[in-house]
Design a protein around this nucleic acid. Structure first.
Lengths: 226, 226
DNA sequence: ACCTGAACACCGTTCAAGT
DNA sequence: ACCTGAACACCGTTCAAGT
């Protein structure tokens, strides 16, 4: 409860959780997740690698804190839009999560690889479930819908950021798919190739999000039509 | 086209892509992705680590081949169920993908971390898009629906396998969530806690899959009501 | 042709010792 | 109290040299 970060009478610490987290997120944006090592982070902080372990028990711990930090403020984005119906508020929340993950290089990979349970993540989840419960959905449906939307959003953004990285740096992989599909072996992929290789990820995300919300609407038994 | 694996007159090779792939998947099941190193795989094959690079250019290459291998046979599973309507065939395909990923430890993580474009993956995609096109969906909708379902399935299974690992080995994390939620800070999470912490992942997967299919049904303009 | 041996340039993590 | 220095036990990848 008081180990580091408590004001003491010793030398002022060159390290602390908040500054380290900030530097780690900067490093992530500049170099990507694969290049984010404890040694490089320590270097950026002007310190030896071992010193980081006074503030983060493991690298996984650091990544979890980063994931939590990335979602800071996402839940409030939907409260601003009050008065809208539940479906629009849900869509706003999902879009806010995607945007938050996209805001950092490999953001979806960091989030998917951790199990953050800080106030940002829990606040987001609570707001999400609240929107549905107040709209008259059953508790079970509301909780399951949270997972559906979050898992879809993370899955989509994972794919989106992977595709963005494949574009620059490895353009062979894209044309490799094109070549493989351009035969009579995969007639349906061939026929839909323009859409399959489209880079309009926002449109793609909206399509799936709309399907899920439409599905929710179908099982919506309005008790109090607010 | 003929470098290794072609029958030659030299010593019989102790290594080849197929056997190495098999061993890698076994090792994955036994020890998990984090313990799957080139050195340990080489050890299991009775060979030095460097020798693996005659068959796989990089570790990423090996993982991609593993992902492709994992999805072998998933597309045929839906062809067996002929005569069903498009929605049931779609659900069968999605379930088959989840099952294939669940069949290997960290299967979803391997799949999400690669960009496999082999016949298993492309065959699956072609079958999926074909079901929708033949049901009368527009090309654009069919292609986008593929991404929606696949991204949802991967996102869900990623979460499912992560939760399974968190259960045994790190049971504090689960109760940590319970403790954090059991306050008046997150009233909606508190009210839905039983569903949120349920381990019936099949039911959870079916819920989201059903929402997506219901959403597709809503925009289904039947041209030929087969 | 296929594999070994050894190296290169790294990793995450720990911990006595310094200040 | 906070950080250094150095070590431990590893990594992925390359490549001359052997057989």
């Amino acid at each position: 409860m008081s180990s580091p970060s408590t004001p003491t009478r010793g030398r002022p610490a060159r390290l602390d959780r908040a500054r380290t987290l900030e530097t780690a997120l900067d490093l992530l944006n500049q170099s990507g997740l694969d290049a984010l090592t404890m040694r490089r982070l320590a270097d950026a902080m002007g310190v030896q690698a071992g010193a980081l372990y006074r503030y983060f028990a493991t690298k996984q711990d650091l990544l979890t804190a980063m994931a939590e930090r990335m979602l800071e403020g996402v839940s409030t984005s939907a409260q601003a839009i009050d008065g809208d119906d539940w479906s629009e508020r849900l869509a706003t929340l999902a879009r806010a999560q995607r945007t938050a993950l996209l805001a950092h290089r490999d953001g979806a990979r960091v989030f998917a690889g951790t199990h953050a349970t800080g106030p940002s993540v829990l606040g987001f989840a609570d707001t999400f479930v609240g929107v549905l419960r107040e709209a008259g959905f059953q508790d079970e449906a509301a909780a399951r819908a949270l997972y559906t939307v979050v898992n879809y959003t993370v899955g989509h953004t994972l794919e989106e950021q992977a595709a963005l990285q494949a574009e620059d740096g490895d353009p062979e992989a894209v044309s490799a798919l094109r070549d493989a599909v351009t035969t009579d072996t995969y007639p349906h992929l061939n026929a839909t190739l323009p859409t399959l290789t489209s880079t309009d990820f926002t449109r793609l995300f909206e399509f799936g999000l709309d399907l899920i919300i439409e599905g929710l609407r179908a099982r919506h038994a309005p008790s109090s039509a607010k």
